[in-house]
């Protein structure tokens, strides 16, 4: 009986994982070690701030991060004053004012990250018809998650000779179908890290992935910390209830 239970559980797990293959085969991205993995995972604050720098200086030229507020940045180690300065560097349209006119003002910590384009059509027009996706949930919305995002950043290669590339497309070994509209975003020393870390492509790819995982799951650390306590409590309670159950049933032959 116990074996059949195991088999059923295993089968449900298999169905749940549901490995739907990609339409066009792409190589599996490298399996990375992340600080936020595992039961006790947490973010590396310094990496998050470096990743934020990469996002701001590189990705944000085309990609929005519309679900994150500037105020959220205090969670990755910026002070409230720093957050105010960061927000104030971007102009945001507000209004209408008392005269009924819309006006521009520096962004506030309570604003969401300002998108690089006013709408999707403007974004397409500026990007050869392709729409740069919003990055707020990108590590949750792609099969492979953070590994895939990292792979995509470091996966640019010259197209194989026998492959016909459409105009303006780049070859990426981890992108489904291999033809991606985004040109290789990272190159050596593209940003100058404030903390002196050498800005290699893998380093920047890792940092920005860390940052995007935080952007997608800002609750991750709290969730795991609470989870450890809850599961430990439940294991203890389950064990105690098992003892009670045995005691209560001890005089009942069954």
């Amino acid at each position: 009986m116990r074996r059949t239970v195991g088999a059923i559980v295993a089968a449900f797990v298999l169905i749940g994982s549901n490995p739907a293959p990609a339409a066009e085969e792409a190589a599996a991205p490298p399996s990375m070690k992340w600080t936020f993995d595992g039961l006790f995972g947490s973010f590396d604050r310094a990496a998050l701030r470096r990743g934020f720098q990469v996002y701001t200086e590189v990705c944000a030229v085309c990609h929005s991060l519309r679900l994150v507020h500037y105020r959220n940045l205090t969670a990755i180690g910026f002070t409230e004053d720093q957050v105010k300065e960061i927000a104030a560097e971007v102009e945001v349209t507000d209004g209408p004012d008392a005269e009924g006119e819309m006006f521009d003002r520096p962004a506030l910590p309570s604003d969401r990250f300002v998108s690089p384009f006013p709408n999707d059509n403007a974004a397409r027009a500026a990007n050869n018809g392709a729409l740069p996706p919003d990055l707020s949930l990108v590590t949750k919305s792609r099969i492979g998650g953070p590994d895939y995002i990292y792979g995509l950043m470091v996966g640019y290669r010259d197209a194989p000779g026998d492959m016909e590339m459409s105009e303006g497309m780049a070859y990426n070994m981890y992108f489904p179908g291999h033809q991606i509209a985004m040109p290789a975003p990272l190159s050596e020393e593209l940003v100058e890290y404030a903390d002196g870390t050498e800005a290699t492509v893998p380093q920047m790819a890792k940092d920005v992935t860390d940052f995007l995982v935080w952007a997608a799951e800002p609750e991750l650390e709290e969730r795991k910390r609470m989870g450890v306590k809850v599961v430990l409590f439940l294991i203890l309670l389950t064990g105690m209830l098992f003892a009670v159950k045995r005691a209560v049933w001890s005089n009942v032959p069954h």
Binding site: G227, V231, T238
Partner: peptide, 13 residues
Amino acid sequence: CAFLTIFAGFVFF
């Protein structure tokens, strides 16, 4: 409680 333990494993991790 045995169920909740497994369930919490999914919810939190």
